Simulated assay, not measured.
Amino acid sequence: MKRNLIITALLGCVTIVLGAFGAHALKDILSLSELKSFETGVRYQMYHVIVLLFVNTYSGFSIKSKNIISYLLFLGILFFSGSIYAISFGVSAKNIWFVTPLGGLLFILGWLKIVKSFYKKE
């Protein structure tokens, strides 16, 4: 669990850095559409960092549930937000078109695991 919280805190820090980078350094480089996509990646990353903080400090979930949820959301951030960042920096969407929806699916699975954990009180 401590490892999950460390990774979560680092992801939170990276989110702030990327948000500031997008707001200042990228506004003159990216088109408005590209900048909005980048901001979507940052926003979804921060939403899930906040959820990860909750999950990993909530005493009602087992360590196993916390780890499963954390890994699903960590990978969701990597694939969903990471692919949006990559596309914003010039990687062809045609080359990684499947990565963003895969990240979205991992987010959904993480949320469903949260539902299951609340339901079962694991």
Rank of each mutant, 00 (worst) to 15 (best):
F107Q: 00
G103N: 05
V17R: 05
K120E: 13
K2C: 02
L18N: 08
L32H: 05
E39N: 12
G104E: 07
L35M: 05
G103C: 09
G41E: 03
T8S: 15
F107I: 02
G103K: 02
V17N: 07
N56R: 13
K36T: 01
Y119W: 10
D28Q: 06
G103Y: 03
L109Y: 06
S81P: 10
A9E: 09
L112R: 08
V51I: 14
K2Q: 12
K120A: 10
G110T: 05
G12H: 13
I84S: 01
S31D: 06
L35W: 04
L18H: 04
N56D: 15
K94S: 13
K120D: 12
L10W: 15
V17I: 14
L105V: 04
G82W: 02
S31M: 07
L30N: 08
W97L: 12
F21W: 10
A23R: 07
N4F: 14
G82S: 09
I7P: 06
L105I: 04
V91K: 12
G110D: 05
L106G: 00
L102M: 05
L26F: 00
K36W: 01
L78M: 13
I108F: 09
Y71I: 15
N4A: 15
V49G: 03
G90V: 05
L73P: 03
I69H: 14
V14P: 02
K116M: 10
N67D: 09
M46H: 00
E34L: 04
M46D: 00
N56F: 14
N67Q: 09
L75Q: 09
F79T: 04
G104F: 03
F80W: 10
N95T: 08
C13Y: 14
S92G: 14
G22C: 08
V49S: 01
F107G: 02
I69A: 09
I29V: 08
L35A: 05
M46F: 03
P101C: 01
S70H: 12
L109R: 05
I16D: 11
F61C: 06
